Amino acid sequence: MAPEYASDGLFSVKSDVFSFGVLLLEIISGKRSRGYYNQNTSHNLFGHAWKLWKEEIPLELVDTKLGDCSFQSQILHCIHVSLLCVQHDPEDRPGMSSVLIMLVSEFELPEPKQPGFFAKDSGEADSSTSNMQLSSTNEITITLLEAR
């Protein structure tokens, strides 16, 4: 569930992109995001993936069943796309059509920002939350039918 929907009940066209990113991270890691537990930190699945990404060791996230060395570059690319999809702010997430292009192309991807629902270690500070603004991009059309 996208952070903007979970916290404020605001749904956007980027909420599905967030869900797709979650699914991609779950496939790559072989772990479910709900109930994920890492004994070394208090991070959730997104936080763990983000921490590994920032430490430049994202392949440690990969499920051992996917550990074939010949696919490492594709797996790394998928981790990168998934982190772009689960960014906290909907405006920072790509559209679903862009996600599909990212998955099948080899062009350079933008650097992801912090994911939504990022559980921090007690010693970590986050200056971005103080500057957070609530917004919703609802692209909904409502049609009312009236009899003649």
Rank of each mutant, 00 (worst) to 15 (best):
H88N: 15
F46R: 14
L103V: 07
F11T: 10
S128E: 10
P3A: 02
E4Y: 09
L25W: 12
L24P: 04
Y5M: 13
L144I: 12
G21E: 06
H77A: 06
V62I: 15
P110I: 06
Y36E: 11
V86H: 00
L84F: 09
Y36W: 13
I75M: 14
Q133M: 08
S135Q: 10
S7G: 01
L52P: 01
W50Y: 07
S122R: 06
V17K: 07
L10S: 09
E91K: 15
P112K: 04
K54L: 00
A49T: 03
D126G: 04
V99D: 09
L83P: 00
Y5K: 11
T129W: 13
G21T: 05
M96C: 03
N138L: 11
L103Y: 11
M1L: 12
I28F: 09
I57L: 02
I142Q: 08
I140T: 12
E56A: 06
V62G: 07
L59Y: 01
C69T: 10
L45Q: 08
V13T: 13
L145N: 14
T64K: 14
H43V: 02
E26W: 05
V17I: 13
A119M: 07
S19K: 05
V81P: 09
K14C: 03
I140Y: 08
L61A: 03
K65W: 03
S15N: 02
S128R: 11
L23T: 13
F20H: 15
L52F: 02
I27P: 06
